[in-house]
Design a protein around this nucleic acid. Structure first.
Lengths: 200, 200, 200, 200
DNA sequence: GATGAATGAGTCTTCATTCAT
DNA sequence: CATGAATGAAGACTCATTCAT
């Protein structure tokens, strides 16, 4: 049936577009309705609130990313290719679709954020699993030093290169800063020495 | 003139506080006036608009950062220490005060952003200069491979580690993505091999 | 026709329930549809408008009341019992179901109120007839003074004890106030002396 | 100073007018603003919300009533006059200004109703005190039977003749109905015998 | 009979900004 | 210098009603 009626899709597309162009708070329901060429009230037939539109748009984009990422990682050959894939694709997405986040997260009331929290760990896990796959691959090829701490490195990359949870919890700034302090050693180390096994 | 009257300072302090706590769009002039314990109209005696308050607050914070950074870099010894300083301090600032940015940048109309553009290159230059200082120091100590491309690496670090211009120009997403594509090779390289001179 | 289809009854019951719980204006057709477990549009198959649902619900309740009142009055013995019946039952109804009225009457546009006006005199007549029956009964028993003006007293009781037309016609306030002025003498008289024949 | 600036008064007057004419829910802030010849936003300079306007209007009217009532009661001579005064004036007010109540009370969210609750007992007390004064006066004149239960009678009159708390607590219908059951004996008694001392 | 989808008009509220004093 | 008062424009959301199927 029409769970995802064409109208709903039109709304979602228009919203995603406008959100990523102009940010969450500057995109009004009037704008979305105009872009989707429907009446404003129609939006409320499909979504209970502006926040819900946002969250649904976000979820769609994330899923889209994972599907694409898994496929391309599979096709990539060599650790450099795979690593590059792992960084490039999400970044492209982040820069294309996620800026909405930064705007939105502070406008959206707690209850909704909690709903986001349910998805986040799952996303992280999927990203981590993919990264550990690459590290394993690197080890099998004898390219990586045994002491590379896969999970921690994965977390680091997610946090730093992918803006991980950076903005999620502005109130929790202290936690973030403590994490930075803890991580910066590892970052300096990588910056200086990389993670390739050194021939002694 | 009264550029630095105590009232103006109170407004600026209150604004900075509220902006970094609640984000730019959720901070109303009413809030600022209440926090600064002055009448709302008074704000308009000192600032032509909400955006101006924001930009001035931002400038102050940036200056504060540079002063502290330069001092601490001077005191740090060894390339690891200096690098760590170079990364840690700005990051702490970014995470403490800059999230305002993400919120604000999309709310602020173009004309104001152009004014920001005037400052940005200057900030970059100062950051780059500091970084090149570190690289030179590394070379002098014989620690860094000759082929390290200081300026480019500096730019990279600024962009990636410090969220550089990430959100500044949402409309210019393509430019950013092209830059990412160009940079990712370097990042992979660093991730794998670091920048320390390899003993052959 | 389906004047009495089960669906219509379900709608009417749900509506009566919600109206008396939450008042007319706070009960939306969405609420009614949800409570009746039918689609909102279905309501319009049975009722031309929200007002019509209300009027029909009101009529049902009134009929219910009269049936019960007549039966119990018949069974009551002695003038005190009968009077008490006459006051208690309608009042119970008024307090249970009629508050809807107060809310509704001001929301409902004139044309509909006129329709109500058609029913009202009829209700009054039935109430008056019942009351006159009681007075007659009192006279037969030799309990009531001859000068008791049955119809006027009946009207008074209906107006005052039963919130008679109180809210029906807000625009007609002056008429109501004039009636109050006229009636208060009678009320004072009753308050002071009652209606029982005084033994001289 | 201008605690009650002229503008505020204008708003309040317009609001009271419209509320009592058209009811609380059908009176929009647009209407009020138009009637007061100010911009809608100006209302919010003086009142935090529509509910607050309503409560303030209500309070004003109540105070007005008490002042007038006390004065006229003082001037009235004879128990009949006083009683009549006691019934007529509040009733006139109730019918003129209080219908707003019925509409409003179900539209107004709990927190505001609680604020009303703070005033209500106070109003009751004042009404009761005035009534007891009349009863005492009647006793002094040797007109009233000793067994007249002043406080209870006062309560009764307030509840029944003045619509006392009738609509205040729709959720508390059971309490009201129990009270009716309890009171109806007294009402029947009064209806039959009045409260004047019977000459034996 | 019944309904999913769509909507226009309206609701209360917020907020940056202006201006006379 | 400072402010109390006032406002226009816009915001998210509600709801009775319509209509094709």
């Amino acid at each position: 049936m029409n769970t995802n009626s064409e109208t709903k899709t039109r709304i979602l597309n228009a919203a995603t577009d406008l959100f990523s162009h102009y940010g969450y708070p500057k995109t009004s329901l009037d704008d979305i309705a105009r872009a989707a060429q429907i009446a404003k009230a129609t939006i409320y037939y499909y979504f209970p609130s502006k926040e819900d539109i946002f969250l649904e748009a976000l979820g769609n984009k994330a899923e889209e990313l994972f599907v694409m990422l898994e496929r391309e990682l599979d096709e990539a050959e060599g650790i450099e290719d795979k690593l590059s894939c792992y960084l490039r694709l999400p970044l492209r997405y982040i820069f294309e679709y996620m800026p909405i986040l930064a705007d939105a997260l502070n406008q959206i009331p707690q209850p909704y954020l909690l709903r986001l929290e349910e998805y986040r760990p799952q996303y992280r896990q999927r990203m981590t699993a993919l990264f550990l796959g690459i590290i394993d691959y690197g080890r099998e090829q004898g390219l990586l030093a045994g002491e590379v701490d896969g999970p921690r490195l994965s977390e680091l990359i997610n946090d730093w290169f992918m803006l991980g949870d950076i903005c999620f919890d502005r109130s929790d700034k202290d936690r973030i800063i403590r994490r930075i302090e803890r991580d910066y050693e590892l970052i300096i180390h990588i910056l200086l020495f990389g993670i390739i096994k050194r021939k002694t």
